[in-house]
């Protein structure tokens, strides 16, 4: 009963944050909805008894991604006239919501038909996760490290000002 009520509260936060993200006009308010959604998602990871992933979610998604997102929204600091004009926003959201809802139902049915119960084995703890990560999954782990390095270099190159590049190559 406690689990279910915790789940309902967290699910309300996630769905409310997601709806706030896609409906707000100002990107900063959307970012706060996104933050609420990500924090509640860490709570759901904790509810699934996966403490390490809950911590990683808070540290990476909330601590790094959302903060970087809010910082770039504040850096861009778009004025009201620079935001896109979306006069039929709610109509579009309603229409695409109606179109997407059968897909939602299909995804939910196809996943929930496969497995009805949680496993009774208690094998997913941080120790087992670490052993699996560094034995069977060590190659994807290394590939992810290369991906992060190349994303960092690529982000610096893309976001750099053009005249800085011209000055350095001269």
């Amino acid at each position: 009963m406690l689990e279910l009520s915790l789940f309902v509260i967290l699910a309300l936060f996630i769905v409310g944050g997601a709806v706030a993200t896609i409906t707000n006009r100002q990107p900063l308010f959307s970012a706060f909805g996104f933050l609420v959604s990500m924090l509640a998602m860490a709570g759901v990871f904790g509810l699934l008894e996966n403490q390490f992933l809950a911590l990683a979610q808070i540290m990476v998604s909330v601590g790094a991604v959302v903060v970087l997102n809010i910082l770039s929204i504040m850096t861009v600091n778009a004025k009201e006239e620079n935001l896109p004009q979306e006069p039929y926003k709610y109509r579009w959201i309603l229409l695409s919501g109606v179109l997407v809802s059968p897909v939602t139902f299909l995804i939910y049915k196809s996943m929930s038909m496969a497995y009805q119960h949680f496993s009774t084995l208690e094998t997913v703890n941080t120790k087992v996760m670490g052993e699996t990560l560094f034995s069977a999954w060590v190659l994807p782990f290394e590939i992810v490290s290369i991906l992060l390095l190349s994303a960092m270099v690529g982000a610096i190159v893309i976001a750099r000002k053009k005249d800085v590049i011209a000055k350095e190559t001269r």
Partner: peptide, 11 residues
């Protein structure tokens, strides 16, 4: 990962 009791999904 929790349904199957295996750590692969968590990784």
């Amino acid at each position: 990962s929790k349904v199957l009791g295996s750590a692969d999904g968590s990784v």
